[in-house]
Computed example of a mutant assay.
Amino acid sequence: MKGIVEERAVELGVYIVEQKATVRAAAKKFGVSKSTVHKDVTQRLKQIDRQLYRQVQHVLAVNKAQRHIRGGQATKEKYERLHLLKK
């Protein structure tokens, strides 16, 4: 029988793959820390479900590659909002 931790790891993995979610988004959705999500999907999931683990790693790699773009976009939007408030 699977324990609660193993079930959570699988649920997190499925959520990340289906939603193409970030670790941060998954943590917020499941009410756990980013560290917990990361440990579940990088260590625990590898032992539980190799195929799901590989799919999650692919999504996380794509997210990591796009991270700098999202950060730049967020900064741009921040300063656009500040500029609009000053008018």
Rank of each mutant, 00 (worst) to 15 (best):
50 R>G: 14
41 V>S: 00
72 G>D: 11
57 Q>E: 08
71 G>E: 12
70 R>Q: 10
58 H>C: 02
56 V>S: 00
43 Q>E: 15
73 Q>L: 14
58 H>M: 02
61 A>P: 07
71 G>Q: 12
71 G>D: 15
44 R>W: 03
59 V>E: 01
67 R>W: 07
34 K>F: 07
70 R>L: 08
49 D>G: 08
42 T>W: 08
35 S>Y: 08
42 T>R: 09
62 V>G: 04
72 G>M: 13
66 Q>S: 06
54 R>S: 05
38 H>E: 12
61 A>R: 04
62 V>Y: 05
51 Q>C: 09
48 I>K: 05
40 D>V: 10
69 I>R: 02
42 T>Y: 10
39 K>A: 11
66 Q>I: 08
64 K>N: 09
51 Q>R: 07
52 L>V: 03
68 H>C: 05
63 N>Y: 02
39 K>S: 12
56 V>I: 10
71 G>Y: 06
40 D>A: 11
50 R>I: 10
48 I>R: 01
63 N>E: 07
52 L>T: 03
37 V>Y: 04
43 Q>D: 13
39 K>C: 09
34 K>H: 11
68 H>K: 10
63 N>P: 02
60 L>E: 05
64 K>Y: 09
49 D>R: 04
40 D>W: 00
52 L>F: 02
53 Y>H: 12
65 A>R: 06
48 I>T: 03
34 K>V: 15
66 Q>F: 09
67 R>E: 11
44 R>T: 15
47 Q>D: 15
58 H>V: 04
72 G>Y: 11
39 K>E: 14
59 V>K: 00
63 N>M: 07
54 R>E: 10
46 K>Y: 14
69 I>P: 01
72 G>I: 13
45 L>K: 03
68 H>G: 05
58 H>Q: 04
57 Q>L: 05
